[in-house]
Write a protein that binds this DNA or RNA. Structure first.
Lengths: 221, 221, 221, 221
DNA sequence: AATGAATGAGCATTCATTCAT
DNA sequence: TATGAATGAATGCTCATTCAT
C-alpha cells in the first residue's frame, strides 16, 4: 500500500477508494486528468470534498489509484481464462483473446491509461509500468513455450499487447463501422494466423472464427 | 484558414506561427498541453507573450496549429516516397515503411497526437480527424488495388496505420532493447509478409472481405 | 470558569484539560498557535480528536487555557520564594531572581506568551492581561516598600518584569554564548545593583518619582 | 536580491514591493502573518491579487520583504545620528536614544518583528538575524570603545538592544500611563546612568534629562 | 506590430468543527 | 463519555487573456 490514508479502517479505505476511483474514471473520461477537478470527482464519488483527502493525499494519488486498479483488473482478466490450458498454442489464443476482450470491455480505462500515463508521478509510474511489463512478460513466456525461434518473443509479445488495444485507440474511426466482436475476431485472426502457421509448419489452419486447431470455449459466452 | 489572426500580413503569420508551433512542441513534449503555459511557449518561440495573441486567439488554437502541422507533415512524408511506384504491392510496402519511418522520426509529435487529441476543441478535432482519415484512405486504396478479397481493406488499412506507431507508443519498454531500424524492419515484415504471400497468390483464405464501409458480417456468428 | 465543557465531572475536566494544555504546549512550541492543528494537539494530548470538544469549545479556548495556566504557574513561582522575607530589598532581589529563574525554566511558554498573545480572543486577553498585571503590581508593591522616591515604582516594576525575559526573547543570540545561570546572574546584578546602592542610601538622585499611576512629569520638558 | 520577481524593471519592482510591504504591515498588524490573506494584502496594497506574484513568489516572501525592510530601516535610523560623534560616551547615548526612538516610531513593525519572526522561512531568518546581529555588534563596539572592563560588552549590548523595545513590547500596559517621550527618557536614564557612572568612575553626572557630561543636541527636536 | 505588466477566475488542499455510533 | 469519519469554507497560488504603451 503506497498511497497514504488518514483513516485506519482497511475495509473503509477500500470501499471509499473504490468510490473515488469510479468517480474519477467518470470525470477523467469526460475531461482528462488535468481538467478534472477534485471537487467534481468528489461529487461523482458521492463523498465530501474534504473526505477525499482522508483516503488519498493528493490529486496525483487519485490518478495512481486509477492506474493501479486498472492494471490489476486488466491483468487479472487476461490471466483468468487460460490458467488451466496446457497447450501453448491454445493458451496463446485464449490469452490474447482475453486481452482484446478486456481491452474492449475496459475501453474507457484503456484510453485513459494510454493518454494520461504521462501525468502519473515518476515514482508511481515506475510501479505501474512494472505491472504493465508483467503482462508483456506473460505473453513472452507463452510465446517462448510455443518455441518458434524465428521470432523475437519479447518484441512479438509487445506487439501483441499493443495491437490488443487497436480497437480502443482507434475507436473514433472504427466505432461507426465495426462492433466489439468484429474487432476482436479481426485481431485474433490477424495477429495469430500467420504466427500459428509458421509455428505449426505445414499444419493447415481453419481461419474461421476459431482458427486454432482444437475448439476453444469462450469462457465469457 | 480557420485560426484567426489580428495581424494581416500572410507571410508574417506563417513565419510566426511556425515559431509558435515549434515552441509549443518543445513545451508540450515536456509537460503536455495542459501543463504547458502560454508564457513558456512564447519564450521558447522567441516571441513576446502578448504577441502570441496576434497570431492565435487562444491556447486552444496553438494546439490545433500543432495538430494541423503534424498531420500535414506526416501525410506528406507518407505520400512522398511511393507516388511514382506502379506495382501495388511495392507501393504498399514503400508506403508503409515510409509511414513507420515518419512515425519514428516524428516520435514526439506522434506521442503528443495520441495523448493530447482529447484536448482539441470539438470543431478543430473534426478537421484533424478528417485529415487523419485521409491517411487511412490512402492505405485502403493501395490495399484495394492489391486486390486481395480475403481482407477488409478499410480495417486492414486502419490496423496498418495503428501498428505503424507501435514503436512510438511503446517506446518506454522498447527503447532499452531496440533501435529505430530494428523496430521498422520488424513492423514491415510482421505486417506485410503474410499479406504479401497471400497477395502473391500462393494462398487463398476463406475469410470474407467486405466492401468498405458498408455493413460487416460478423465472422463468428 | 470561563471555558465551557460538555462534560460535567470537574475532576475529569481538570485532568483532561491538563493533558490538552501539555499537548498544546508541545505543538505550539513547534509551530505556533496558527499552524498547530487541533488534530495534532489531540494526538499529543493522547485524547481523541472529538473528545477535545468535550472539554473546550474551540481552538481559541485551548490557547486561553494555555495562557491561564502559564500566567498562574509563573506567578506562583514568583511569589513562592519571598513570602516570608521581611526586608524589602531582600524580597525584591529574591523575587526578581525567582522571576528570572521562572522565565528561564518556562522559556518555551514565555516565548509563546510573548509571541502568541495577539491571537487570544479579546475577552480572554483581558483576563490574562489582568493576571499579568498582578505580577507587575507585585513588584510595584515591593518597590514601593523599598521606599526610594527617586524612581517611578510602576514603571520600574514593568521594566523589571520585562527585563526578566531577556534571556528568553533573545535566546537565539544568547544561547551559543551563555547558559541560564550566567544570564540570571547578569540580570539580577544589572537590574538591582544600582537600585540597591541608591536604596541603601549612599546616593540621592534628583529624578522625581511620581505617584503611580497618576500623571507623569516628563523629565525632559 | 534574494526574492525573485517575474518582472524585470528594477524601479517598478521597488515601487510595487514598497506598496506590498505597506499593505502587508497594515494587515499583519491587524491579524498577524498567518491570518493575513494574500488577498487582503493585495487589496491594501492596491494591487491585483495575481500581480503580487509578479513581485514576490510566495506569501513567505512578503514576510521576508517586511523583515528585510524593517531591519534595514531600523538600523539606518540607529546609525544615522551618531556617525559624526567621536566621544564614545556621547555616541553610546545618542545611539541608544536613537534606537529607542526608532523602536517607538516603528512600534508596529517592532511588535511584528518580535512576534512573527518564527514564521520566517529558515533561509530568510538567517539573513534577518545576521542583520539584527549587526545592530548588537554596533553597540558592542561602542561599549568596547568606552573601555569599561567590568562589563561584558556583548551581553550588555544585547541587553541594551532588548531593553530598547521595552516601550513597544509592554505598550499594552504602558500606553495608558506614559507617552513615548517618557518611556524614551526613562530607558536612556535607566540603562545608561549607572553604566556611565561606573565607566566615568568618580565623575558626578547630572541625572537630568541629558545626564551626559556634555550637552547633546537631540537631532530630532 | 510588439511587448509584458496587470488581472481575477479557478483549483488543490487544509483544518476547525460536527455528529453518528 | 469517547471517538474519529465527514464536511465545506477558506486560502495560497497559477495562468490565460487583456490592454496600455
Amino acid at each position: 500500500m503506497q498511497v497514504k490514508a488518514r483513516v485506519k479502517d482497511k475495509n473503509l479505505i477500500d470501499e471509499k477508494r473504490r468510490q473515488i476511483i469510479e468517480g474519477a474514471i467518470k470525470v477523467f473520461k469526460k475531461k482528462g486528468y488535468h481538467k478534472a477537478t477534485v471537487r467534481e470527482i468528489a461529487s461523482e464519488a458521492k463523498i465530501g470534498l474534504g473526505s477525499i483527502y482522508d483516503y488519498v493525499s493528493s490529486k496525483d494519488d487519485i490518478l495512481y489509484l486509477f492506474f493501479e486498479n486498472y492494471v490489476t483488473t486488466f491483468f487479472d482478466k487476461v490471466r483468468s481464462r487460460a490458467f488451466q490450458i496446457v497447450d501453448p498454442y491454445q493458451r496463446l489464443e485464449v490469452t490474447f483473446r482475453a486481452f482484446v476482450e478486456a481491452a474492449m470491455e475496459l475501453e474507457d480505462q484503456v484510453m485513459l491509461a494510454y493518454t494520461q500515463a504521462r501525468y502519473v508521478k515518476k515514482n508511481y509510474l515506475k510501479v505501474i509500468l512494472r505491472k504493465e511489463s508483467e503482462v508483456v512478460e506473460h505473453f513472452r513466456k507463452i510465446l517462448s513455450e510455443v518455441g518458434d525461434d524465428s521470432i523475437d518473443p519479447f518484441l512479438e509479445a509487445n506487439f501483441l499487447v499493443f495491437s490488443g488495444v487497436f480497437g480502443v485507440l482507434r475507436r473514433w474511426i472504427l466505432k461507426p463501422h465495426y462492433d466489439h466482436r468484429e474487432i476482436i475476431d479481426f485481431l485474433v485472426q490477424r495477429q495469430l494466423r500467420e504466427l500459428s502457421e509458421r509455428i505449426k509448419g505445414r499444419k493447415k489452419l481453419s481461419v474461421r472464427a476459431r482458427p486454432w486447431p482444437s475448439g476453444i470455449t469462450n469462457v465469457e459466452s
